[in-house]
């Protein structure tokens, strides 16, 4: 965290790969090639990649693709995946209908129920 990261460091040119069209983020339909290109556009953190491409911003919130994207970005940058901090986790843990999120039960009921 907060290590100085010089974005002018040479990571070499973007070289197209044979598997660039493979889907990585299924929810948002982002391919491996798009992720690799984004790195060469300067998106060097998981957070930047996510904001730039929407990877991990779909219904599963990156549950499936986060590790996959990370491995691709790390390889492109020539670093270990562990050096890349995962993107932030955000409420809600599971998608929730607006009508339900808006409905605070506390005033209506005394205690937790199992919802059945």
């Amino acid at each position: 965290m907060n290590a100085v990261n010089d974005r002018s460091r040479d990571i070499g040119p973007f070289i197209p790969g044979t598997d660039d069209d493979i889907l990585i983020c299924r929810c948002e339909e982002i391919t491996k090639g798009e992720i690799r290109k984004a790195v060469h556009d300067g998106m060097w953190t998981m957070t930047e990649i996510r904001r730039y491409l929407r990877t991990g911003m779909g219904l599963c919130q990156g549950q499936t693709c986060a590790k996959l994207v990370k491995a691709i970005v790390a390889k492109e940058l020539g670093i270990s995946p562990a050096e890349l901090e995962p993107a932030t986790s955000r409420v809600p843990m599971r998608p929730i209908e607006m009508r339900i999120f808006a409905n605070e039960l506390a005033d209506k009921k005394e205690d937790g129920q199992d919802g059945k």
Binding site: V91, M93, R99, N103, L105, G112, D114, G115
Partner: peptide, 29 residues
């Protein structure tokens, strides 16, 4: 122990507050 099922904890907030989706609403605990 009270086990509440079909209860999705959707967030853990400051001061050890959780929000749980239960049925068609949410509860703060």
């Amino acid at each position: 122990v009270k086990v509440v099922l079909n209860a999705t904890v959707i967030g853990l907030y400051q001061d050890k507050e959780i929000v749980v989706k239960i049925g068609d609403g949410i509860e703060h605990y």
